[in-house]
Structures are given as structure tokens and as C-alpha cells.
């Protein structure tokens, strides 16, 4: 029943509710700051070439190596004479990409598992729950490290590894929400109308838990960024690409820690922390929108 009129109507409704949500969001100052931080990072990730003061493909001169912060290099230089600030800016794209895509994979798997195991009890659901249990008992970090070490070092492998090892939390949350929704009166009513299981899953349960999934996605992005930092630091990332994790790795390898070259390893850390803060503040702002509605629901 999709037609031009119905699409227009839906878009008008979305626009109206978006406006309402936005005004609620704006009442939270921290949420706005978080949004600002994320917008900055997004800009850096999309167009690093415009923001980065130096070209990172070119090595610096011998004298410029491992120089502390100065007017010429605001965050100092690395062991190859490259400007740290430029490296951080370029690293944003990879770290963010890894964070986002791994979150999508992780939430995707977790939601499907949660939906199916929550809605269908019995064999199907039980089996999926046991699979979830097995996966969640596995220590994520050693598992990630092992998988990353086994596979070729590349961004996509890192994304895959993070996505495939971190879906269990989402699965549990989605499953418990589905279990409670399944028993609610409006689902019984839908059944009495003649709705098929698939329709109920899609329209009544899934559509209702989308806000929850969105909130979880943000948390998964945060986890993805930190996981990337960990794997990168351990040297399991792609050494040909600059990311915050690999920056930390090289800072360690080149002895920046023992040298006291703080400008090499602290800025990536700060970038990670700032980006996470941004996400968390935004997620708090979103909570204010989601929760009143949940409370009414």
C-alpha cells in the first residue's frame, strides 16, 4: 500500500515528530556539546585533507623527528618527522569507520538473535540462547586478539572481528525487551486480528524497539572505537593505515614511552576519550527523548 500520498503523509509525520524530539534534545546542554564534538569529528573524518596542516604521506626531515610541540607542529612530530596533529586528523576516519561499521554488524547480529530467540521460544529460541550463552562466556578480548592475529591485518578484518565478538550484550537486551513486549496486550490484540507472526515481529515488536536499538548502537560504536584502539595498539591492525590505535602502537614501538615523548602517545588517547565522550553525551540526550515515550508506553 505504498503510494505517493502515503509516503508524503509519513514524511510529514516524521518531520513533525522530529521537530518535537529536537526541541526535547536541545534542553540538554551536555547533549548539545556532545553533538558538537561528534560533528567536529565527522567533519575531520570526511574531509581530513582540508583540516590537516601537513601532508602525512611525506616524511619530514631528519631534524624534525620526535620534536615536542611547537608553533610549527602543534602536537609535535613522530619518529618519521610527520606532524602528529595531521596524523590524528587522518586517523579519525579509520577509527570512526571501524567503530561504526563494527557497531552495525554487532547490533545487526545481536538484534536478529535477540528477536528470534525472544519471540520464538522452544527449540529455535532455546538453541539461539545457548549459542548466545556460549559466545558471551568467551572472553571477548582474548578472542578478538586471537582472531585478529589469525587473519590478515586489514581494516575490514578488524571490523569483522570486533563485530562478531561483541553482539551478545545486544542480543540479551533485545531478547529481554522482546520477551516482555510479546506478552503485552497489544500483541495479543494483533494476534486476534489475524496478524501473522512475521507481521507481529516486524511491525509490533521490532518497530517498537528501534529506539532501544539506536541507543545500543551508540554504545557499540564506543566499544568499537576502544576495541580498535586495543587491537591497533597490539599491532594487529593494518600498519599501512593511520588510526588512533596504530598511532599508539607505533608510539610504543619507537620507544616514545620510555623517551618521555608524551606528544606521541597522549594525543591519540585524548582523541579516543573525546570521541567517546561525544557519543555518550549524545546518547544521554537521546535517552531523554526515548524515555518519556517509553514511560508513556
Amino acid at each position: 500500500m505504498v503510494s505517493k500520498d502515503s509516503l508524503l503523509r509519513r514524511m510529514r509525520l516524521w518531520a513533525k515528530s522530529f521537530k518535537g524530539s529536537w526541541s526535547i534534545y536541545c534542553t540538554n546542554k551536555l547533549a548539545l556539546i556532545g553533538l558538537g564534538i561528534l560533528l567536529v569529528f565527522t567533519a575531520l573524518a570526511l574531509f581530513p585533507q582540508y583540516f590537516s596542516p601537513y601532508d602525512i604521506t611525506k616524511r619530514g626531515t631528519l631534524e624534525d623527528r620526535m620534536k615536542p610541540p611547537s608553533l610549527k607542529h602543534l602536537l609535535g612530530t613522530d619518529d618519521m618527522g610527520k606532524d602528529i596533529l595531521s596524523l590524528i586528523i587522518h586517523g579519525t576516519r579509520i577509527s570512526m569507520l571501524i567503530g561504526f561499521v563494527s557497531a552495525v554488524i554487532s547490533v545487526g547480529i545481536g538484534s536478529i538473535v535477540g528477536l528470534v530467540s525472544g519471540y520464538y521460544g522452544g527449540m529455535k529460541g532455546g538453541l539461539m540462547m545457548r549459542a548466545t550463552d556460549v559466545f558471551s562466556v568467551m572472553p571477548t578480548i582474548p578472542l578478538m586478539i586471537t582472531l585478529a592475529a589469525l587473519l590478515r591485518p586489514s581494516i575490514w578484518n578488524i571490523i569483522l572481528v570486533i563485530g562478531v565478538t561483541s553482539w551478545t550484550g545486544v542480543a540479551r537486551i533485545v531478547r529481554s525487551e522482546v520477551l516482555s513486549r510479546k506478552e503485552r496486550l497489544f500483541v495479543q490484540r494483533a494476534r486476534s486480528l489475524g496478524c501473522s507472526d512475521r507481521r507481529i515481529l516486524g511491525k509490533y515488536i521490532l518497530q517498537g524497539i528501534l529506539p532501544l536499538i539506536l541507543a545500543n548502537t551508540i554504545l557499540r560504536v564506543v566499544s568499537g572505537i576502544t576495541s580498535e584502539a586495543l587491537l591497533g595498539f597490539l599491532g594487529l591492525g593494518d600498519p599501512t593505515v593511520v588510526s588512533w590505535g596504530t598511532l599508539l602502537h607505533f608510539s610504543f614501538l619507537t620507544g616514545a614511552f620510555s623517551m618521555g615523548a608524551y606528544w606521541y602517545f597522549i594525543p591519540p588517547g585524548i582523541a579516543i576519550v573525546l570521541s567517546i565522550l561525544g557519543f555518550i553525551m549524545v546518547s544521554q540526550g537521546l535517552d531523554a527523548i526515548i524515555n518519556p515515550r517509553l514511560r508513556r508506553i
Binding site: 490484540r189 511491525k203 508506553i297
Partner: peptide, 16 residues
Amino acid sequence: QMIFQDPYEALPPHLT
């Protein structure tokens, strides 16, 4: 068809 006791719970909250 069935009409339920609780008008608040019987209607799906996310649909118009």
C-alpha cells in the same frame, strides 16, 4: 473480534 479491558495497553503505542 475482541475488545479488551485496558484501553491503554490494548493499542500499540508506536502506531497512529
